[in-house]
Design a protein around this nucleic acid. Structure first.
Lengths: 164, 164
DNA sequence: GAGAAATAGTTGGACGTCAAAGTATTTGGA
DNA sequence: TCCAAATACTTTGACGTCCAACTATTTCTC
């Protein structure tokens, strides 16, 4: 669906007419929401032929960066900033597909390790290649725009307490 | 969960070490994804006491901007760029809560109008006030950063064919 | 060293999104 | 005019995310 006008511009005009405030905040939030929609659409479509989505790919990539190719599930959630229940769900799927297997943590019996399999490592490589091909969904954004996005969102993440 | 380091920075370093490419694209995509997560968390939390989430609020706001306070469901989907099934779902909930009611389209019997009720209009006003209070979740972002985000994402949306 | 509190992970339920298929109606071309 | 194609919406089902509750284990504290 292609509209004849920029829907965010349109929304801003409407808000202004209604006397509503914080319009700059509204447009930024709406833009980010829409950008996310575009990105996940493109990324998940590109990864689908590999049997992956972005979440699953992220887990594989993260594991492939560790020395031993393994990490406790809790650490995975911390690094990727997703809910524990989502980690369980994602790892379930990866395990069913043979890209990861669960192993008990050697010293903490509460914990479970997600261990990358050889196929999982290969899948991560291929996923990275596919994503590089489509520029992670940000095709159409200039390099300066990408950098500006990083900088702007860094303010938000920092204020939200993502890291110290 | 507050990490001691910026997880996106960390990911970029890992990607570089692994010899993976398109790192600038990766960080932009990851930043947008995380920003969206922060925003929806804040926004939905703020709207929850009103019995709304962002999708439902958006529909109420859109209707309140029309002359008659009504719009065919299809138009709602076009404007808000959401799937028809999601519109059905969202309007179902709004209707159950008494903020909207369905009426047959006067001239096209395929179409259904979503009509804003008096309570719905009030809810939209309160929602707008609540969202203005929390700055639409972008609190922590400077005004220039918000504007830069708008500009950068405009490139993406335009390239994605959101509007002509 | 015993019990309370914190931590790790899973499960089940509510909710949201999307895709595909189905029904009803309108439009457009032969 | 008539029929095929397009359009409007709903339904169903697959998935993903989050929250809250639950089990198991470890850590902290007195």
């Amino acid at each position: 669906m292609t509209l004849a006008f920029d829907p965010i511009e349109e929304a801003a005009a409407n808000w202004r007419s209604a006397g509503w405030t914080a319009i700059g905040a509204m447009t930024a939030a709406t833009a980010i929401t829409r950008a996310h929609q575009i990105l996940t659409g493109r990324i998940d479509a590109a990864l689908a032929p590999l049997g992956l989505n972005f979440s699953r790919f992220e887990v594989l990539a993260l594991l492939s960066f560790t020395r031993e190719g393994m990490l406790p599930l809790g650490k995975v959630g911390d690094r990727l900033q997703v809910h524990p229940a989502s980690v369980t769900n994602t790892v379930n799927r990866l395990e069913a597909d043979g890209y990861v297997r669960r192993e008990p943590h050697p010293t903490d019996r509460r914990a479970t390790l997600a261990v990358l399999t050889a196929e999982g490592r290969q899948r991560a490589e291929r996923g990275a290649a596919v994503l590089a091909d489509i520029e992670f969904g940000v095709a159409g954004m200039s390099a300066p725009a990408r950098a500006a996005t990083d900088r702007a969102i860094l303010e938000l993440r920092s204020a939200a307490g993502d890291f110290a």
